[in-house]
């Protein structure tokens, strides 16, 4: 690898830009390609560009054989982010577990006594209103959003912005009844049932979780499933015990 290629790669990663390093395994030529940029994708043959796009979306590096040539596509996606709305008890184990799983964690809670750095070491804590915070954070396809307050004043504005974003996961804590009332409010706010179906509620996989740490496991497991196995992820049905039994 050329030192200049490596330096550019590391600058792009520090700037949280998605980048792929394309290496020709026979000629050893290399090139940085930006999967989000049509201009950059146009610098390589169309079949190679397509392979880079697929690799970036699946977040999967690998070797491809195109027109008799072998290429290694190494995908460097920006880090995963988890925005947790509600600096509540469950948020504490969830933040720690998400950090271990490689997420950058941002806790949002306008209640200043909840949102303190002491309660949440190693994560970003914002005491802004969730709509302001989410507008600034600009959730992308590498972002998961989990609301935990089950207070409509705080959760609803967050969900409103979450549904307008391309976040790969949106989950909301609350009982089946709370969730039904929430969906009704979201529909009154102008969202269609198809749109609100993106919200996973009651949040988390159905594993009989009781303690805050166990609930955090079920949430992180569901986030992982949505990220890594989107095809088998049944859009909310998995968190429904009745659906599991069927």
């Amino acid at each position: 690898m050329k030192a200049t290629t490596l330096e550019t790669l590391q600058r792009d990663r520090a700037a949280k830009r998605a980048v792929a390093l394309l290496s020709d395994l026979d000629s050893n030529e290399e090139r940085l390609v930006y999967p989000d940029s049509p201009t950059s994708l146009a610098t390589v043959p169309p079949a190679v560009a397509e392979a880079i796009k697929i690799a970036a979306i699946a977040d999967r590096s690998g070797v491809v054989k195109i027109a008799g040539k072998r290429f290694f596509i190494n995908v460097y996606n920006p880090p995963l982010r988890m925005i947790v709305v509600g600096a509540v008890h469950i948020a504490q184990p969830l933040a720690r577990m998400a950090l271990l799983a490689g997420y950058e964690v941002i806790i949002v809670d306008p209640r200043r006594s909840f949102a303190t750095a002491v309660r949440f070491p190693d994560v970003t804590v914002l005491s802004d209103w969730p709509d302001d915070a989410l507008a600034t954070l600009a959730p992308d396809p590498r972002t998961a959003i989990v609301t935990l307050t089950h207070d409509p004043k705080i959760d609803d504005p967050a969900l409103n912005l979450a549904l307008k974003s391309s976040a790969f996961y949106i989950g909301a804590l609350g009982s089946r009844k709370t969730h039904a009332a929430r969906l009704k409010r979201m529909e009154l706010a102008g969202f269609t049932a198809t749109e609100t179906a993106r919200i996973r509620g009651p949040v988390g996989l159905s594993i009989g979780a009781r303690s805050p740490a166990e609930i955090a496991i079920s949430v992180l497991a569901q986030v992982t499933e949505t990220l890594r196995q989107p095809a088998t992820d049944a859009g909310g049905a998995r968190s429904d015990p009745a659906a599991d039994a069927a």
């Binding site: 490596l6 330096e7 790669l9 590391q10 990663r13 520090a14 460097y76």
Partner: peptide, 9 residues
């Protein structure tokens, strides 16, 4: 992995 390549730099 990001820090690994930083070390190379």
């Amino acid at each position: 992995d990001e820090k690994v390549l930083d070390q190379a730099v």
